[in-house]
């Protein structure tokens, strides 16, 4: 019996697709190219194989994702992860929240912030800067967005400059995208409990 995880956790679950992923053996040349499959690299996740059904989107999405989360300058990587986490908590994407809470903890060398967020939710006791970042990401992620000038004032008061605010907008918005793939197209399940 597969157990779907419904509570936030930093233990990254297995992602079990709700649709049948592309079979690597039957993949087109365009799909293989987008999947970056080479004779020495044949390991591709079920998630990416699922997205390979829409190969044109996959080709542009992966570099865009990496640029928003990892390009140099602007907001710190840990704070971009906090933006991603805010979005993922709004959209209840358990898998994304786990991955990005774990990365935040790794980058910060502390589980303090994500422990508090998972335990106390939006009321968590955060630093002024983390509070402003998290609140903006949450507000922007609602549908429609509830982000308002007050959120922007709080970010500025917490010391974020223009480049940092732009990175926060991009990282939170990006997870509006990622959550709608991960949370919609698959289930987070306990590792080792996959459907056969």
């Amino acid at each position: 019996m597969t157990k779907v995880i419904t509570k936030f956790t930093r233990n990254v679950p297995h992602w079990q697709p709700r649709v049948t992923p592309v079979d690597l053996k039957e993949a087109s040349d365009e799909q293989l190219d987008a999947l970056k499959v080479t004779p020495s690299n044949t390991k591709v996740s079920e998630y990416v194989l699922t997205l390979a059904h829409d190969v044109e989107s996959l080709k542009v999405r992966s570099p865009l994702f990496n640029a928003i989360m990892y390009d140099k300058g602007g907001m710190s990587r840990a704070e971009r992860e906090l933006g991603a986490l805010g979005a993922s908590m709004v959209n209840h994407c358990i898998y994304c929240a786990a991955v990005h809470a774990a990365r935040h903890a790794q980058l910060e060398k502390s589980t303090d912030v994500t422990d508090k967020l998972f335990r106390d939710g939006a009321k968590a006791d955060l630093s002024t800067r983390d509070r402003a970042i998290f609140d903006f990401a949450v507000a922007l992620s609602e549908a429609p967005s509830r982000a308002a000038p007050e959120h922007m004032d709080a970010l500025k008061a917490a010391g974020l400059d223009e480049a940092e605010v732009l990175d926060l907008i991009l990282s939170a918005a990006l997870f509006g995208w990622a959550n709608r793939l991960m949370h919609v197209l698959g289930d987070p399940v306990r590792v080792g409990e996959t459907r056969n």
Binding site: L140, S141, A143, P144, S145, A147, L166, L168, I169, L170, A172, A173, L174, G176, W177, N179, R180
Partner: peptide, 10 residues
């Protein structure tokens, strides 16, 4: 979802 939020944020 992404594009709309980038616009709202900008």
């Amino acid at each position: 979802a992404y594009q709309l939020r980038v616009i709202a944020g900008l």
